[in-house]
């Protein structure tokens, strides 16, 4: 048998493939259904929050910040309750990160405010002396891509049955109809901000990246399901 494998490159390749594929099949596939179940009461991200998540991805916050609180006392003391699998059910992609140059953000919404984030993103050292995080001033002027965020909500609703309302559906018309809701949410965030340009932009019907990002950061934490738990 071995002799034959060594002589036949094709079957040799099949052999290699089986050996390397086997681990994946056993390890990954059967667990899929279980691990994708959301915690009770978990709400999907709003369109504005999704836009913020995309800003988080675009500027690669994940390069320095994790979103995974491990079950150690030192971590739960610092960041709050440890992370549960079901909390990530609507995260596509997962944003756990692999490096904590800065602190974990999985529950940052529980203990930071819109004002804090605004100051911090404009100039990190103004709120955290000694911080090595760069300032992200361009987020105050760049417009967030809310159309793509809406498209994402439609996609996950239609393809993966993420529980969004009936007002999120495919097509440009539906998007035009939905747009004011995103703006209304953005206005609520902007009301707590002090940057003049941001406020003006939101009033003019635009959503700067920083507004979407703060909406997303505020959503991180237990607020996404705890309020809905008691029915």
């Amino acid at each position: 048998m071995f002799h034959w494998l060594e002589k036949n490159p094709f079957f040799f390749a099949v052999g290699v493939f089986l050996v390397i594929a086997f681990a994946g099949l056993v390890e990954i596939l059967p667990n899929f259904a279980e691990a994708s179940r959301p915690v009770v009461g978990l709400k999907p991200y709003t369109v504005l929050q999704l836009a913020g998540k995309n800003v988080y991805m675009k500027d690669q916050c994940i390069a320095c910040h994790s979103q995974l609180i491990r079950p150690f006392k030192a971590e739960t003391d610092r960041y709050g309750q440890y992370s549960l699998s079901g909390e990530y059910a609507y995260d596509r992609p997962f944003l756990w990160g692999s490096k904590r140059t800065g602190p974990d953000l999985h529950r940052v919404g529980n203990y930071r405010t819109t004002e804090w984030h605004e100051n911090h993103m404009w100039d990190p050292t103004s709120v955290v002396p000694g911080s090595i995080m760069p300032a992200y001033k361009h987020m105050f002027s760049n417009a967030a891509d809310i159309a793509t965020a809406y498209a994402e909500a439609v996609t996950v609703k239609n393809v993966f049955h993420t529980p969004y309302g009936d007002d999120i559906k495919a097509g440009k018309k539906a998007w035009e109809a939905y747009r004011p809701k995103v703006l209304a949410e953005a206005k609520k965030i902007a009301a707590n901000m002090k940057n003049k340009d941001v406020k003006d932009a939101v009033n003019a019907g635009k959503v700067p990246e920083i507004v979407a990002l703060i909406a997303y950061l505020n959503s991180l934490g237990s607020s996404r399901y705890e309020a809905n738990k008691v029915k």
Binding site: E27, I28, N31, F32, A35, S36, S85, E87, Y88, A89, Y90, D91, R92, P93, F94, W96, E152, T155, V156, F160
Partner: peptide, 12 residues
Amino acid sequence: VSMYSGTNDALV
């Protein structure tokens, strides 16, 4: 968007 979500996505 990724075909997998959350923990599954992390595993893959």
